[in-house]
Design a protein around this nucleic acid. Structure first.
Lengths: 353, 353
DNA sequence: CTGAAAGCGCTAACAG
DNA sequence: CTGTTAGCGCTTTCAG
């Protein structure tokens, strides 16, 4: 197994020159560079990562703390990890995977053992005991999710407030005057994940700003029974309102249903079907889902995108800004905007328009 | 940031003693051990991973090559990664995640840079160009999946042949004389993943051994149309056979349908429902699915388990045998046995029994 | 533009 | 049972 010394000998240069050729940290004459490169190829030289880390005090590794087992949305995890991993590779870094069940000790271990140059902490909750530890570390930490107290850390997340707003406004535009939001499952609500509140609050605020009624049904477990019950309540609420319509106009496009938790979508569609209610005709349904998933439901459901790839790409970007030359002073919250796409489950437009 | 030298000074011992206390590689008097431990705690000392790797020629890291994007069964990936990660931690190892799209260069890089002590290669295909490279490495490689030429490498996989057999035998026991196997999607077939063939062959062999007819419908894309067509053909095949029943007895329990690819199960159940065919009464359905998933379909589908956790636990076990003291000589194929669980979708038993 | 040399922090002989 | 010492392979001053 060749070392940089072997490369140096073969190229007829010093070991430090080899190092500088690889790092580009000082000017090298074209001729020498070529000789060194040739020697590297010939020996298929790879720098020893341990030695590099020891001498250079950079591991070229990022630690990724993944919420295995406890994830509210396991579907989004894989694309996320994938994107981080390939993003890291583009910057000549590798990814060390750590499971969240190690708790805060994972963080101190990653830092203490100098296992990585930076840490990405996934699925951060509103009040997360790891934040305090994380903000005391010397290695930069990037949070995916926005806690109540970011504590000077950099956060990246989908803009759930914008998502809630977008969903409601999209329905209002299509003429809905009564909106119901099917909330998150009890697990998510109890764990107090930040976006649960942000989504709901923004949806209510948007409705109130538009002067329409909005019922937030939450929590709703991801079981057929719970979703069926919630859908039933939502439909009744909407019907109750009809008679009291004060302008007497028939401008009500029916219930506008927002499904906040992607996992509940198939159940919600089934529940509507059971009652003979047709999305896109009798009611509108807008769900939080990745575009690909939304396009694949039957019928394709209108969705506010939760592209975990968008978020993770942004995370990679911020991550390597943290590892770059100019140190971004304090923390910062970076929210990735969602998009609303109308598919088959929204009605065409205001009846009175 | 304290080093082992600091610990040594504080404990009033030599640096090597600190090292030996941590590794347990030589006897230490109880008194000294205590002093050292105390110093370690007090300083919250963590050994520098790079230095340790450099001096000790063990990184305490295992490389995991994950088939992101191309996985035939994304659902099984996460539990697998999770199990490997926590298994590794139990042995004081960490996991470095590498995406398969790096191809063989990932392997040479992991080895060349001395990034890990062993490599786990997931979702190995029947003829996989990485095998040749892997078997030439100095770091031990564990394959998940069984290639045609294991080339002296250790492999761990679900026993797909046993699974195929189990599914067919389970149906035969319940009285089915006509069996159809809904095969894998074209992607899986084309990529020539080993288990596709092993499952199908074993199913056919078991049927032939039991003297029952068996049609292998493959490939079947995971689209409503393709599955519907395949189900239709399966049902017709079964019906054709009825008239030719040579013993004249009405001992035919109807079609026994094996769904080889878990992803097709909902589509298959829907296709049956469309034709008014009731699983568990008119036909039996046995699918390859994790138990949890099978229990959650409606109705709960009888299944041959594909517990990726079982496989990955076995993988961890073999992995650390490779890293242990006694070097398991050559390669070896380790097959994890599946289990058959009858749920709602199999008929009660032979009509004639 | 290039070399020489001093460590980075740890492990593992070797010596008692 | 414990201490001394020589590297592991690289990066990075300091010289030229």
């Amino acid at each position: 197994m060749p070392t940089s010394k072997d490369v140096a000998r073969l190229a007829g240069v010093s070991q430090s020159t080899v190092s500088y050729v690889m790092s580009g940290k000082r000017p090298i004459s074209e001729e020498v560079r070529q000789r060194v490169q040739a020697a590297i190829e010939e020996l298929t030289y790879h720098p020893n990562a341990g030695a590099r880390a020891l001498a250079g005090r950079r591991t070229h590794v990022v630690g990724l703390v993944v919420p295995f087992g406890a994830s509210a949305d396991p579907g989004g995890l894989l694309p996320f990890i994938e994107t981080i991993a390939s993003g890291a590779r583009e910057h000549d870094h590798d990814v060390l995977l750590v499971t969240a069940d190690e708790g805060t000790s994972a963080l101190t271990r990653l830092e203490g053992r100098r296992l990585c140059d930076a840490i990405v902490l996934m699925e951060v909750e509103a009040r997360d005991e790891r934040i305090a530890v994380a903000s005391g570390l010397r290695v930069p930490v990037l949070l995916v999710g926005v806690p109540e107290e970011p504590d000077g850390l950099v956060c990246v997340d989908l803009d759930f407030a914008a998502a809630g707003r977008l969903a409601v406004e999209g329905l209002v535009e299509r003429g809905h005057r009564r909106i119901a939001v099917l909330g998150y499952p009890p697990e998510a609500v109890e764990r107090d994940i930040g976006y649960v509140r942000r989504f709901g609050d923004a949806a209510l605020a948007a409705a109130s700003a538009a002067g329409v009624e909005c019922a937030l049904l939450s929590p709703v477990a991801h079981t057929a029974a719970a979703v069926r019950a919630a859908v039933g309540r939502a439909l009744e609420t909407a019907r109750d309102g009809d008679g009291a319509d004060d302008d007497g106009l028939d401008d009500d496009a029916g219930l506008g249903l927002v499904v906040a938790s992607g996992g509940a979508v198939p159940l919600a569609l089934t529940a509507l079907a059971e009652r003979g209610v047709v999305p896109g005709r009798d009611v509108s349904v807008v769900a939080m889902l990745p575009d690909a998933t939304a396009a694949a439901t039957s019928p394709p459901v209108s969705n506010v995108s939760t592209e975990s790839r968008d978020v993770s790409r942004r995370a990679v970007q911020e991550l390597f800004r943290l590892l770059g030359d100019d140190p971004p002073t304090g923390g910062g919250v970076h929210l990735v905007p969602p998009r609303l796409t109308h598919r088959r489950t929204t009605v065409a437009g205001p009846a009175g328009a």
